[in-house]
Design a protein around this nucleic acid. Sequence first.
DNA 1: GTATCTGCAAAGAGTTTGCAGATGG
DNA 2: CCATCTGCAAACTCTTTGCAGATAC
Lengths: 160, 160
Amino acid sequence: MKARIDQIKNELHTQSYKLTPQREATVEVLLENEEDHLSAEDVYLLVKEKAPEIGLATVYRTLELLNELEIVDKINFGDGVSRYDLRKEGANHSHHHLVCIQCGSVSEIEEDLLGDVERKVEEEWIFKIKDHRLTFHGICSRCQTEQGTEAETPSLKAAR
Amino acid sequence: MKARIDQIKNELHTQSYKLTPQREATVEVLLENEEDHLSAEDVYLLVKEKAPEIGLATVYRTLELLNELEIVDKINFGDGVSRYDLRKEGANHSHHHLVCIQCGSVSEIEEDLLGDVERKVEEEWIFKIKDHRLTFHGICSRCQTEQGTEAETPSLKAAR
DNA sequence: GTATCTGCAAAGAGTTTGCAGATGG
DNA sequence: CCATCTGCAAACTCTTTGCAGATAC
């Protein structure tokens, strides 16, 4: 994790972006919550704990920047907010997501499931694939056993 | 198409929703533009040609209703707008999309490519899949040949 | 030193909602 | 008839932007 943060700092340097404390704190928050698909607001609140003077606009600007540098993926689960998901080191494809329509939890699948599918699409539709988004909506294992559990992740409003 | 519209009307009836001229016009527009991934605004402008008195709010309400009845899918390609995509007759899974990052065009893949993948996910992650969203981002066949074509679909702002 | 970055507040875009009047069944 | 639906405008939410002062390099 130490290594990863230095790597990101380095990436900023190389592209001659300044490494401000705000950007540093934002990256730290993203690393500390890698599993969590945070919205800009979520990130803002967490960064505020480290750097109380930060403004929401700066968080948006930083996330935007990190998205352009392909350090995070901006994703969207159909509720009204963008979420920001750290790319795995060296990954050039976004990973997949399982969104539970009962409790709202989101989990990740690292494994690349689309190798065969992509080969087929590139060939049959003559489409040069650069990235993909794959999300499954359904019932997570916990909700399948624990009947009738209510929303656990209030920040994820039900996809309308 | 005549059949499909009656089927949708029937669906509304069955659920005891009223069949107003506004709803009828909206459904017609969706059917006439099945290929087009219209935004609410797009739908509004098209419906206005048939029924000039309609309000944008009604379009939103109708699209929302059709989404709940699973007649349309509300989808999101990462630009700021929701798009509404008519489900194919009898389809219980959303189809797939190819979004060109050069010209912004969106095309569809009807074929279900995810059979094997879904079986694997359900088994290994113990996740009961109800629906999926699969979008590929890349270069469409036309842009691969015609070098440097500019945005053709101005309504699809580049995903930020 | 100075181009870049920041916080703030205001603006913008998309979507939702409250309400009073209209209307489909 | 009357519950549901509509148009309008205002409200709301998320995100972006303009600006003047601050700061990394």
